[in-house]
Design a protein around this nucleic acid. Structure first.
Lengths: 137, 137
DNA sequence: TCCAAATCTATAGCTTCTGGAGCATTAGAT
DNA sequence: ATCTAATGCTCCAGAAGCTATAGATTTGGA
């Protein structure tokens, strides 16, 4: 039996976050001690670790809910789980591409060395005038 | 004189967002028409375009507030503006690196082709068992 | 037994918007 | 001048995913 604090330490999920996940229905409401404190079993530790890992990978609460539901049915085909992961991979790749565009833009903007005044600062001017951009965004 | 709708069309910032920026103090409360509608000048159009551009580059409202304050003082040295942009570039690069780690992880996980069952699905197992990961996160 | 640490509930706040309800104003056509 | 469709107003709630606070209670160890 783990207290909520134990669970938090073992999974790295903060205590209020565990309670939040319970509220969101990602984990079931656990048994309570005589004094009404949450008491968890190993099963719930594993489930929370699963959630933590998926969150670390950037999956949304919604996707995780779906994956957890799927994992309750080991006999079903896994195409759906595969689809969720693949879809997420696509969004991750899009995000990377987007950020790399920003990186290039910022690199150009930051080329100013800070030894002059705001009046002719490239950072400020570049932000004020979109037409100075190299890429579209 | 622009109405809020004009401003929105010209800058690509949605109307409620413009009102939100006003509330947040990024743009000043403009003049009003007799009937209490917002009426903007070119100055405010430019300021909003600046904000839009900076947001597109991912700068926080706080950073933008600072940059706008700086731009009011063209005679001051621009080291601070430079610092804000450089700092942002660093966080962008960190985000990219983080996402690339996730990309590699997801690529490995997704290698499953969806033609079997949940019971032995690599997606599900990889999420359940952190030790299957190639990288730390 | 006593006390500090942990936990409880309920609620509000964070960030950056976005959307809706219900009503008022405006611009353009007639 | 009048009508009407589009636009604007304020206020409030919600989205995502937590985080923090307050004030009360429970727990575990000395």
């Amino acid at each position: 039996m783990y207290s909520i604090g134990d669970l938090s330490r073992r999974t790295g999920v903060k205590i209020p976050t565990i309670r939040y996940y319970e509220q969101m229905g990602l984990i079931a409401a656990p048994e309570r001690s005589e004094g009404n404190q949450r008491r968890y079993e190993k099963r719930e530790l594993e489930r929370l670790a699963f959630i933590r890992h998926a969150r670390d990978l950037g999956l949304s609460i919604e996707s995780i809910r779906d994956l957890l539901a799927l994992s309750q049915h080991p006999e079903r085909p896994c195409g759906e789980a595969d689809r969720i992961a693949k879809e997420h991979l696509i969004t991750v790749r899009e995000k990377i591409a987007q950020l790399q565009k920003l990186e290039r833009e910022l690199e150009r903007i930051v080329a100013c060395n800070g030894d002059h005044t705001i009046g002719d600062c490239y950072v400020i001017r570049a932000l004020a005038d979109h037409s100075m951009c190299g890429t579209d965004h």
